[in-house]
């Protein structure tokens, strides 16, 4: 029994150790960058006009008179006790801030990923099956555009066309003023909260605000997903089992969309997980153009104000997300690929 438990425990210990090590590395690097940035965190709080007395007092309150190593150790000891401190930019506890801004990003990133996968994967498959043809060129061109188009510009043009000219979508922000605070916050995802509250109008308004930034982010992610799908599919389509399946008389449609794509999913899981991670990390420019109060904007503002508690809190959250997504993709990988379940 003990022996049977030993292996999973060792594995668990390994995971915990690597998670702790990741967090230590993340916080250490962020802390050092934050402290050596040429921005004075005291000025962020007291402003340019404060007297020397006030400046010095806040300097000490922030612990800046201590060596960086001591500051870091103090921070870590507080984090261990669950104290992430207050953000100087919002005057609120960092945990409360992160809890407030993360759902906005989660909502945006999730829809963006859905669009990215639903559009990107078929695009990649079609490109691979039409290698070198016009369709392939179009897909590659669209992917290239997605890679190279400045998101800031794309956002503004999107707003101009779909919001200002055509009136298909709502403008910047998450909701119209008239709908503000109409539904109670349960998940923080306004679309979901509106459904839970049975408020159709709020739901459609929130969706109207969400659809354009999510489509733009989705386009950027589909560019990557489509390219990767294409290249994975090309590798699969060269395999002998494909030839065998076709020789047996299976329809090309079935061979491509079921057999080949079925094998590509395993590799795509990692791509999708990493894409989701980078979307959750916050799309600063998209959030700026669309006045989307998410994690990216929060981190950017905190960073520019040298608001280290906020930056570290958000960094730890992102670290957690990446670790979680990695673990999740490992698990899904095991479920999807029978070979991963076999003992080595």
């Amino acid at each position: 029994m003990a022996r049977r438990l030993a292996a999973p425990l060792r594995r668990l210990g390994g995971v915990v150790f690597s998670v702790i090590l990741t967090f230590l590395g993340l916080t250490a690097v962020t802390f050092v960058i934050g402290r050596f940035m040429p921005i004075d965190p005291v000025i962020s709080i007291v402003g340019d006009k404060a007297s020397t007395e006030v400046y010095d007092r806040v300097y000490k309150e922030l612990g800046l008179d201590q060596p960086v190593v001591v500051q870091y150790a103090t921070y870590l000891s507080k984090v261990v006790r669950g104290e992430f401190g207050n953000s100087v930019m919002t005057a609120r506890p960092v945990l409360e801030d992160v809890w407030r801004v993360f759902p906005a990003t989660m909502e945006l990133a999730s829809l963006a990923l859905i669009i990215g996968v639903l559009v990107g994967v078929p695009m990649g498959v079609i490109a691979a099956t039409n290698r070198g043809r016009v369709v392939d060129q179009i897909v590659r061109f669209m992917s290239l555009l997605g890679y190279s188009m400045p998101v800031f510009w794309l956002g503004l043009v999107g707003l101009l066309l779909f919001y200002a000219k055509l009136g298909w979508v709502e403008g910047p922000g998450r909701l119209d003023v008239a709908f503000d605070d109409m539904v109670p916050t349960i998940t923080g995802l306004i679309t979901i909260d509106a459904i839970l509250a049975g408020e159709d109008e709020v739901f459609f308004n929130a969706l109207g605000h969400l659809i354009l930034p999510a489509s733009i982010l989705g386009y950027l992610s589909l560019a990557y997903i489509a390219r990767m799908t294409r290249s994975f599919m090309l590798a699969q389509l060269e395999q002998e089992y494909i030839l065998a399946a076709l020789a047996k008389g299976l329809s090309p449609w079935r061979v491509v969309w079921v057999h080949a794509l079925g094998n590509v999913w395993v590799q795509l899981i990692t791509v999708v997980a990493l894409t989701f991670g980078s979307l959750l990390e916050g799309a600063v420019l998209t959030e700026t153009v669309f006045a989307w109060p998410g994690l990216g904007l929060y981190m950017k503002n905190s960073l520019f104000a040298a608001d280290l508690n906020a930056v570290l809190g958000a960094t730890l959250l992102i670290g957690t997300i990446y670790i979680f997504l990695n673990m999740l993709s490992d698990i899904v990988y095991t479920l999807v690929d029978p070979r991963a379940r076999e003992p080595s």
Binding site: V119, I126, T129, N130
Partner: peptide, 23 residues
């Protein structure tokens, strides 16, 4: 691999789930 026109259309239609959105 050559997909039929109908198959290609079906694939493209899956890529535009939001095209009908017009609140």
């Amino acid at each position: 691999f050559k997909l039929t026109r109908r198959q290609t259309l079906a694939a493209f239609s899956a890529m535009a789930p939001m095209a009908t959105w017009s609140p």
